[in-house]
């Protein structure tokens, strides 16, 4: 048992060191700008369509559920407000992060894992290139830039999906829907929703890079590290979302 605890603590320490060095690497030379752009292209442009599709249907489903429930209470005109708050503060960032984790996080872990197995990371070290600076930093930087961007786009598409249901299915006024949305786009809500993707992007990229770079064995090891990257990222997204929500509600003066 004590060996397992020691191993867990040692792994945690290694993860903290890797993620710290990866983050600090953003501000230290050399800057691998081409690698950052490649990662941004893969992570951002590559995930764009998936985030749009998922967000559209999440927005429509949310709007359907809320319209039905609020209609029974005679509060249909609040659909836009409730849908908007849910999406901007909570559902949008988490949905984009989960999609990003499934696509990009898994890709990062498997790519770095196969580089470990194929001795490519050893080659970098022998050539005097810091693997964290070359491989981890560009992935962290691209994630903390692209995930917030994807979240904003995803939020907009989800609100559009909600609008479609509210107006064409639930027969509400489009003007009321959009004016409710405009009302909730204040500093508190926007700040609350926009701070989360930065944290999620950092967590997904650092966890996935750590899992990839600690791959052991062959195909089986690669499968394990890719699975762990996705599973641990999802768990950390959900836990950190709760903690951030609690902190932000306190900081922004919302009373419970």
């Amino acid at each position: 048992m004590s060996i397992k605890i020691k191993k867990l603590l040692s792994d945690l320490q290694d993860y903290y060191i890797l993620s710290f060095k990866g983050l600090i690497g953003i501000f230290r030379k050399p800057f691998y700008s081409k690698d950052v752009l490649d990662q941004m292209d893969y992570a951002g442009a590559g995930s764009f369509l998936i985030v749009m599709i998922v967000s559209l249907f999440i927005g429509m489903a949310l709007s359907l559920q809320l319209s039905a429930e609020l209609a029974s209470l005679g509060l249909k005109m609040y659909t836009g407000k409730v849908v908007g708050i849910s999406i901007i503060r909570e559902v949008g960032p988490v949905t984009a992060a989960l999609v990003y984790c499934g696509r990009v996080g898994a890709g990062m872990a498997s790519e770095l894992g196969s580089m470990i197995i194929g001795h490519q990371v050893d080659s970098l070290r022998v050539f005097g290139v810091d693997p964290i600076k070359k491989l981890v930093t560009p992935r962290i930087l691209s994630s903390i830039v692209m995930l917030p961007a994807l979240t904003i786009i995803g939020d907009a598409v989800a609100l559009l999906g909600g609008y479609y249901i509210a107006v064409f299915v639930s027969h509400q006024s489009g003007y009321v829907y959009w004016s409710s949305i405009r009302d909730i786009l204040d500093f508190e809500n926007v700040f609350s929703g926009s701070i989360k993707p930065f944290m999620f992007g950092f967590l997904i990229s650092s966890i996935s890079c750590y899992m990839g770079l600690t791959t052991k064995g062959g195909a089986k090891g690669l499968r394990k590290s890719t699975t762990n990257a996705v599973v641990f990222s999802i768990i950390m997204i959900i836990i950190s979302d709760f903690m951030l929500t609690r902190i932000l509600l306190y900081l922004l003066g919302f009373s419970l």
Partner: peptide, 14 residues
């Protein structure tokens, strides 16, 4: 490491 040049098994090309 600069004193050596190493060729890994299977080349380890990027």
């Amino acid at each position: 490491r600069r004193k050596f040049s190493i060729v890994f098994q299977d080349g380890a090309l990027f």
